[in-house]
Design a protein around this nucleic acid. Structure first.
Lengths: 201, 201
DNA sequence: ACTGTGTATCACCTATTAGTGACAGCATCT
DNA sequence: AGATGCTGTCACTAATAGGTGATACACAGT
């Protein structure tokens, strides 16, 4: 019993992350959240006007999607990179970043089941992210290759799927998706696909 | 009130498909299933020993995953095909087949959330399917290209993701995933990737 | 006609969910 | 001191979930 509104609100918001990480989105309800935060559930309605409000606050409090900078790598000297490798590196970096973000993984899974404040914001971030990367690429390399959005959509979709899938299953299509060994194969394939594709056009 | 055990069992099993198609897997419970089948729910326990048993029966009653033959296309004259196109065609055919199977789409989504009798069988079918295709390919073309499983895993993952995603969202990564127009772009990219990859090795 | 056997219905239980109204405690201002 | 307002607690409702025991009904064989 804290008698401190801001601190209580904070406890509720941070409890979202804890609950998502431990029990997954399926268990995230008003009752469980209040229990996790050690707070009466009525405060969720009073302070946030219900669960969606809490999710909105949580979304604003975290950067669950990797930034363009994080995914572009630190060694970016404009114009000096091998053009064929850029997209491959970006996608591999994306895969690695997501593999290190179990909470984002959980939200990615959630997104496939229902829409809510969290998944909506994730959606917008990702679309904005894709737009930024593609515009940057076009700016640096003049003519963009044929249908760059379709390429990144495919690779991004594959990465998202395999990461979400890896939460519960160790194997997909004969490839281990829960080990670094398996992801090495996938990363190599991502790079190989990008390389051959860019050298073909 | 039929007083016909087999017919009642059948009503329950087929109601699974109807319920999945109309309301999605999230609503598929014992109560809803009994309501959908127009049957008392206690019969679900008596005849199937619970929901998992019904799902097992349902899985045995349908072929939700496209067969290798369906995906290989009808015009397969062994050895006469352009080697670089085979995998691409297979994946495009897979995408089209899945787009025509809303129930399978629903199970694909379910699979990302929890494991049950249906998703387990889908999993096994898919792994077996992948194994068959890859073995066939190796048999027909001698040396398989580097890490064929990783290639098909990536493409299959991308397809699954985009199809599941398309249930609720019209756009992913700047590509329309709910229209034939958008899928045309994706199909072209799948083919282009396969073609360039196979001509590079 | 009577008795079992299998089929289906009904009525209930417990647990959990989202959501609300009433109340208790503390602080601050008048 | 007393009134007001904010913070937090408690107790409740209604809906829904999975699951079970007792009962009604029809049909077979005797």
């Amino acid at each position: 019993m804290l008698r401190n509104k801001e601190q209580t609100k904070q406890k509720i918001v941070t409890a979202v992350g804890g609950l998502l990480a431990r029990d997954g989105f399926a268990k995230l309800g008003v009752n469980a959240l209040a229990r996790e935060a050690g707070v009466d559930k009525v405060l969720i309605y009073r302070y946030f006007d219900g669960l969606p409000g809490v999710l909105r606050s949580y979304a604003e409090s975290t950067d669950f999607w990797p930034s363009a900078a994080e995914v572009l790598g630190q060694d970016q000297a404009p114009g000096h990179q091998d053009s064929s490798r850029i997209i491959g590196d970006i996608m591999v970096n994306l895969a690695r970043a997501l593999r290190n973000r179990p909470l984002t993984t959980e939200i990615l899974a959630w997104e496939l089941v229902e829409q809510n404040e969290l998944t909506n914001i994730l959606f917008e971030r990702r679309e904005q992210w894709a737009l930024t990367l593609i515009e940057d690429y076009a700016f640096e390399h003049g003519q963009a290759p044929a249908d760059l959005p379709a390429l990144t959509a495919l690779l991004n979709a594959a990465i998202n799927y395999l990461i979400v899938r890896g939460r519960t299953t160790p194997v997909f299509n004969l490839v281990e998706i829960d080990t670094d060994r398996g992801w090495e194969r996938l990363e190599n394939m991502i790079r190989a696909l990008c390389k051959s594709y860019f050298s073909a056009i």
